[in-house]
């Protein structure tokens, strides 16, 4: 036994070459599964520190690349902002020339849902703000997803909100991309649809927002997205099925948009029309 050890020590140079070459050859001839296992072993043991150093170096290299990309992005966005500023000024100027009234603003009153309509369809909810908080009839109610409904009854400290899913509710909507207008309807409180003219190029996924034409909701509040297009037999209209963005099963914190209905300014004229009709 001793002479073997002695022989190896004497010829250690050749033995070190043989040993490492043998290991290399074993790796070369090993089946892919064993090679993968060897790679895993190497990555967890001897190459682990090297891997950390390399990954950090790569990160630094990536930071430089990202920095370059972000600089380009900043330049691009700065140009876009400058262009938008110009267009905004031009827009204001043209609005003034055409005597357009400026877009309205409104404050959002945060409210909590304190009661649900006990009916299975849940057509309405009660929220924690009323006359004392200057809530009035027809004020829109929204959450972070979009339109929830409108205030239909106001008491001192609470209000009743009619939800969009109430089948008697009709909401004027607009397809954001195509600008096609329609009315959001439902027959059962679950399936929502908008009837559109057949020639409108509606696509699945198109965003639907309030049109502002009904007078209650301001223009541009998100309502939902086009989920399916049903080609019904009607030669004039198609039925676009809508997925609402608001989760009506989990309403908790909402906002009442404190704004008067847009037709309130013309209330006197409207009343006079009704009067004349009578």
């Amino acid at each position: 036994m001793y002479w073997i050890f002695n022989f190896i020590v004497t010829h250690r140079r050749v033995f070190s070459l043989l040993l490492t070459s043998l290991v290399s050859l074993l790796l070369i001839t090993a089946p892919p599964v064993k090679q993968a296992a060897a790679l895993r072993f190497l990555s967890m043991t001897i190459f682990f520190p090297l891997q950390i150093v390399l990954s950090q170096t790569m990160k630094v290299r990536n930071i430089f690349a990202e920095n370059r990309r972000l600089k380009q992005e900043v330049i691009r966005l700065s140009c876009a902002v400058a262009q938008l500023k110009d267009e905004s000024i031009e827009n204001r100027r043209l609005r003034n020339m055409l005597h357009f009234t400026p877009k309205f603003s409104y404050d959002r009153l945060p409210v909590r849902v304190i009661a649900y309509d006990p009916s299975p369809t849940q057509k309405s909810i009660v929220v924690s703000a009323g006359k004392k908080e200057h809530v009035t009839m027809w004020m829109p109610v929204v959450d972070e997803g979009g339109v929830v409904g409108k205030v239909v009854q106001v008491m001192h400290h609470i209000s009743l909100v009619q939800l969009l899913k109430d089948p008697s509710n009709r909401t004027g909507v607009l397809f954001r991309r195509t600008r096609a207008i329609g009315i959001l309807e439902t027959e059962n409180g679950r399936d929502f649809f908008v009837r559109c003219r057949n020639h409108e190029p509606i696509e699945i996924g198109d965003t639907i927002v309030t049109s502002g034409l009904g007078g209650i909701y301001p223009r541009g509040l998100t309502v939902g997205t086009a989920r399916r297009i049903d080609t019904i037999r009607d030669p004039l209209f198609k039925k676009v099925m809508v997925a609402l963005t608001v989760d009506f099963d989990h309403l908790e914190e909402l906002f009442i948009l404190r704004m008067s209905p847009q037709w309130s300014a013309f209330r006197a004229e409207l009343d006079s029309i009704e009067f004349n009709n009578d």
Binding site: R12, R13, S16, L17, T20, S21, V23, S24, L25, L26, L27, I28, A30, Q35, A38, L39, L42, S43, I46, F47, L50, L54
Partner: peptide, 29 residues
Amino acid sequence: DVIPAVFAGFFLGLAQDFYSPQILGQTAL
């Protein structure tokens, strides 16, 4: 000496095999 060079060559080659999609052990040998 020979021994450090052999082992250095083996581990360097193994590291290269590890980081490049070639035959495992090829560069090590």
